[in-house]
């Protein structure tokens, strides 16, 4: 008898966990904003260029000229950190956007317009799925050549299967609902149903997925940089800074620690935000708390039927 309403109700639970914001979340948002600000305002924050080499001052510790010291080629670590924020975020956000454009956009259109387009699309995605994302991105860069463009495309494509699967799962969950059937029975077209009923209900899941994929994009980019096929030397990301300095750990630990700490803090903050969003917006797994078969608890607002009192 008990009907699973918890999912729907939890989905709109505006009161739940609201009000008091956890301190960790505020900190995470602050860190992300700081990184964005650093990337945008880099030219105003430091007079040094991230690329100028000063071979007379390599592996130096912090000084007034170089607030965070220099690396093995005498480049200013602080300037590289600031400009690195720009390229790190730029490349990852663009990569995530491509993953969603293909994975979510294309998948939704294919799903909304009949069986065959969706079947073809997912058959293709299914075949690529066996290859781990990093390896796929690596091979794509090999084929497309190096540079920011191919890197972004490779990152985007390597995360496409994940986005497509999540999109399909949430789409199918929504189309099975009776309100979609009801809209069909009112003569609602595919686009109307997609726009009015499905998109608002899967938007939460997609936003959450984006927040989960963005940090993973950053991590994958850094791995690719480390493997020597990532960002180009003239627009170094934090991943590339770590990779470049990793052979000089002994002589200049600060040159590697600075980008490493920055990278970890950023991914941590982003994933904390993602987790928070998942709890708030995508309560798929949250309904599991109800013990099965037990009586439905009293509704918060007692169901006063007008008939009983009429």
């Amino acid at each position: 008898m008990a009907i699973r309403v918890s999912a729907e109700e939890a989905g709109l639970g505006r009161e739940r966990s609201g009000g008091r914001r956890p301190a960790g979340l505020v900190l995470a948002c602050a860190i992300v904003l700081l990184a964005v600000a650093a990337g945008l305002a880099a030219p105003w924050l430091t007079p040094n260029s991230p690329l100028d080499q000063d071979l007379l001052a390599i592996n130096q510790g912090p000084s007034t000229d170089f607030p965070l010291g220099t690396d093995h080629l005498g480049r200013d670590v602080f300037a590289r950190l600031l400009y690195g924020a720009r390229s790190t975020l730029g490349i990852s956000v663009a990569g995530t956007a491509i993953a969603f454009a293909i994975g979510a956009g294309l998948a939704l259109l294919a799903l909304a317009f009949g069986r065959w387009p969706a079947m073809l699309l997912f058959a293709a995605i299914d075949l690529v799925r066996a290859l781990p994302g990093t390896l796929l991105a690596l091979l794509l860069i090999v084929g497309l050549g190096s540079g920011p463009g191919p890197l972004i495309v490779a990152l985007g494509v390597s995360f496409t299967p994940l986005v497509a699967y999540v999109t399909r799962a949430t789409y199918l969950r929504e189309t099975a609902r009776d309100y979609v059937q009801a809209a069909t029975s009112f003569c609602g077209g595919r686009l109307h149903i997609l726009r009015r009923h499905i998109l608002p209900n899967i938007a939460g899941a997609l936003v959450t997925q984006a927040a989960i994929i963005l940090p993973r994009c950053i991590v994958t980019e850094s791995v690719l940089s480390f493997l020597g096929v990532g960002s180009s030397p003239d627009a170094p990301t934090w991943g590339r800074m770590i990779a470049d300095s990793s052979r000089f750990v002994e002589r200049a630990p600060h040159a590697i620690l600075v980008p490493l700490v920055a990278l970890v803090l950023l991914t941590l903050s982003l994933s904390a935000i993602g987790n928070h969003l998942r709890r708030r917006l995508d309560p798929v797994r949250d309904g599991a708390g109800d013990p099965a078969g037990m009586d439905e608890a009293e509704p918060a607002e007692p169901a006063r039927s007008p008939l009983a009192t009429a």
């Binding site: 309403v5 989905g11 709109l12 009776d178 309100y179 059937q181 029975s185 209900n201």
Partner: peptide
Amino acid sequence: LRRRCQIIFQNPYGALNPR
């Protein structure tokens, strides 16, 4: 034709869009 015939479903929790 749609105006002349309508359907009501079993599960009233699912037949209304929660949003």
